[in-house]
Amino acid sequence: MEIAITNVENASIVVIDGDIDSSTAPEVQRQILPIVAENRKIIIDMSKVDFMSSAGLRTMLLIHRNSAAKKCLVILAGVKAQIAGTMKATGFYAFFTIYNNVDEALAATRGEYHDGDRLLSNA
């Protein structure tokens, strides 16, 4: 699993490439939590993640809690159907802001969701 973070416009894009399991989830957490900051927008590109276990869910939960506390907008993009299925089965899906791909997520950061209100009101 590899993680690449780039800054574009007003958002950070985090590309995760590989499986998120108990051995790799701590690295996801280590790289993403520090960039969760006040009024920031983070798009997590999941289109190259084929597998995510509950260890990944726990990491997502921590990212969600930190971002909500800091009014940081976190968007998941390109979540594969089976991972979305796991997020639905555990009641995670509805609490996250999710777009089909990074382009749609970026468009959203330019538009009506700029202050993270949707994320907070969803929770």
Partner: peptide
């Protein structure tokens, strides 16, 4: 169905 803020973090793996 609990919000993320109030979630208990354990047991999800075995549940799945």
């Amino acid at each position: 169905i609990q919000p993320m803020e109030e979630r208990n973090i354990g047991g999800l793996g075995i549940y799945l």
